[in-house]
Structure formats: structure tokens, C-alpha cells
């Protein structure tokens, strides 16, 4: 019994041969490698979902201000004011939730690093908002998180998820891809559609650089979580409507890897380029460090 796979095609072949869903594959894989019972995996998963809910509540209910002054309680502000532009509560919530969790992270609060700390708002923001607005069951929510995890595993086969290695495309881009797949699974648990959404989201995040002001996970990271929550929803919406990515997911990941290698160090979490080197960015850097 092997749970190794090299890419999406290989993974899909494996699960089809074993007659498993993506969720079942993930549970059996973890059971096999970690030598623990499936119920313990679900318990660990629930612990993480609860932690995400806690950070979400913290970010919404109390304004999050960071020591640097770069994070200024925007999620709390958005949550308390009703802005008529968006009528759909799901979309509004996804934006607020992802921002709230990212703000808690910036203020050194407790979060789940999924897939990374800098991009930790995107997946729970989208999936928890979906769970509330679409009234999906807890088991469907669990499945959505597991599907997001599988997508993360596929990406990590080729690209380490770190801004210092791949730029922000490997953090917020990867998170949006995982969130898009998880979101599709919550609405229509079709493996093909899930990976279409993942491909669409990642493809349209290629080239995203990591240029944080003063090297802090705040500007542009915090707000980028809200932007890429929206990005994930767009990808899921397109995929659910039958829109297909011309470039297959595996090739998109390879392209991301190659772009990451070509990106200069100045744009990979070094605070030596981009926004970090703007006059305002430098001003903040000087006053903070």
C-alpha cells in the first residue's frame, strides 16, 4: 500500500485505482504514515478548525493593532460597518474573515499556519464563510479542509511554500489555489473540478513577489489575504461553471517553480526591493527597526 505520488495526474490515478475519494486518500495516508487512528486525525483537524475560528473572532471583535503601526484593525472596522456594495453575505464574510485572521497573525496572535503564517487567512476565511453562508455540514467543512491539504501537498512536491524561496506566489498564490479547491469540494465534490479551480487560482497568481515593508508580515501581506480570498472564490466560481484551465495544474506548478527561481533575492522576503524600497516603505522601516 503506497501513498506516494509525484503530481496531480499520478495522484488521481492512484485514488481511482484504490477506489478512494480525495478525503479518504488523505485520511488513509495520514493513518499510514503517522500510525494514528482516523478519529484522531479528525480530532486534530477539529482542533485546528477551532483555533481558526478563535483567531477569526479575535480579529473581528477586537481591533488588531500591531507594534509597528502598520496593522490597524481593519477587519474589525469592516465587520462593524455595513457596506452596501456587496449584497452576498458569503463574499463579504470571506473578505472580513481572511483579513481578521491575517491581522491576528501580524499582531503575533495564535493562528494555524495553513499553508504558511503569512497566508493563513485565505483558506479559513473562504471555507468558514462558506460553511456559515451555505449552511454546509461540519463533515463537509472537514472534507473541504482535507481537500485544501491535498492540493497543498501536490504543490509542495515541487515548490517549498516559503516567500524566501518562491515569492508570494508560493504563499498567497498557493493558499488561494488550496482554498479554491476546498471551496469547490464543499459545493460539488468532483475531483476534476477541484483541480481545475486549483489550477485557475494558481495560474493567475504567478509572478507574485514577496516584498514586505521592513520585513514584517504586514504590508502588503495582511490585506493580500483578503484579495486572494476573493481570488479563490473567483477561481472556484469559474471552475464550478465549467471554465477550464488550458494549462494543466501540474504544469502551472512547474511554471511557478521556474518563476520562483528566476525571481531575484530582492523580491523574495528580503525587504530589499519592491514595496519595501518605496519612500514610504523605507520611512516605516527606519521608524520601526
Amino acid at each position: 500500500m503506497s501513498f506516494q505520488f509525484s503530481d496531480t495526474r499520478d495522484l488521481i490515478e492512484t485514488i481511482e485505482k484504490k477506489g478512494l475519494t480525495l478525503e479518504e486518500f488523505m485520511i488513509q495516508r495520514e493513518t499510514f504514515y503517522q500510525d494514528i487512528k482516523p478519529e484522531n486525525i479528525y480530532r486534530e483537524l477539529d482542533h485546528r478548525i477551532e483555533t481558526m475560528r478563535d483567531s477569526l473572532k479575535k480579529g473581528l471583535n477586537s481591533p488588531q493593532y500591531s507594534c509597528s503601526g502598520l496593522t490597524r484593525g481593519n477587519a474589525h472596522k469592516m465587520h462593524s460597518i455595513s457596506q452596501p456594495l456587496l449584497k452576498d453575505p458569503f463574499y463579504q464574510k470571506a473578505l472580513q474573515y481572511s483579513l481578521a485572521i491575517a491581522e491576528v497573525n501580524a499582531c503575533r496572535g495564535k493562528i494555524v499556519s495553513f499553508p504558511t503564517a503569512g497566508s493563513c487567512g485565505i483558506i479559513p476565511g473562504v471555507l468558514l464563510a462558506c460553511a456559515e453562508s451555505h449552511e454546509i455540514s461540519h463533515s463537509t467543512l472537514q472534507r473541504a479542509f482535507l481537500v485544501a491539504s491535498v492540493i497543498g501537498l501536490v504543490i509542495e512536491k515541487k515548490v517549498p511554500m516559503a516567500g524566501a524561496e518562491g515569492g508570494c506566489q508560493a504563499e498567497c498564490g498557493a493558499a488561494a489555489s488550496m482554498a479554491a479547491g476546498g471551496l469547490v469540494s464543499a459545493i460539488n465534490n468532483d475531483t476534476e473540478l477541484i483541480f481545475q479551480a486549483a489550477a485557475l487560482a494558481l495560474k493567475n497568481a504567478l509572478g507574485l513577489v514577496c516584498d514586505p515593508v521592513a520585513g514584517l508580515v504586514e504590508v502588503p501581506c495582511v490585506k493580500r489575504n483578503a484579495f486572494y480570498a476573493s481570488h479563490a472564490i473567483t477561481a472556484a466560481y469559474l471552475a464550478l461553471n465549467g471554465v477550464q484551465s488550458i494549462i494543466p495544474f501540474d504544469e502551472v506548478i512547474t511554471a511557478m517553480k521556474s518563476i520562483g527561481q528566476q525571481l531575484p533575492t530582492t523580491l523574495k522576503e528580503s525587504a530589499l526591493g519592491g514595496l519595501a524600497r518605496t519612500p514610504t516603505g523605507l520611512k516605516y522601516q527606519k521608524s520601526i527597526l
Partner: peptide
């Protein structure tokens, strides 16, 4: 799925 951590960075803080 990543661990529960104190932010702000999974590679620069938690790792």
C-alpha cells in the same frame, strides 16, 4: 495541514 502557531511567519518564526 500546518501546525497551530504564534505568528507572524511560519518560516521566520515557527520554523
Amino acid at each position: 495541514m500546518g501546525p497551530v502557531i504564534i505568528g507572524p511567519s511560519s518560516s521566520h518564526t515557527a520554523g
